[in-house]
Amino acid sequence: MSSPSVQSDAYFQQLRNRQNDLYRFNLQELKKAAAASDLGRIAELRAERAKLSQNDQKILEAEMAFQATQLDPSEAEKRVRAQTRRANALVRSIKTLTDVLESAGKMASILARLVTLLS
């Protein structure tokens, strides 16, 4: 497999889609050829499938090598961090509301006792 000019997540996504399509087609055809007992066709398809499997291994090695160069925070990490902040923001507002009510309640209790003392 020749090395690509630009490796990226999009590139590996393309490879993945292509492999999945080829595997699907190959298995479909194998089943047809098996049903028809077409030995010649079966031999062709088995050989093609072996190549697909070899490519799986090569792609894995390329993915691993590529990822070893991608060490800064990825865009996905940044976006998930932002979503985490959104989730926490709502939890915080509800808790703040609760705190405000609790403080107001405590203040009212203290005032009530004061008023009782003074009257």
């Binding site: 009510l101 609790e102 107001a104 309640g105 203040m107 009212a108 009257s119």
Partner: peptide, 17 residues
Amino acid sequence: AAYATAVASFSDLSKAA
């Protein structure tokens, strides 16, 4: 719970006052 406590406390206050 905080809301209920606040209402009860304010109630005590308003009765006392």
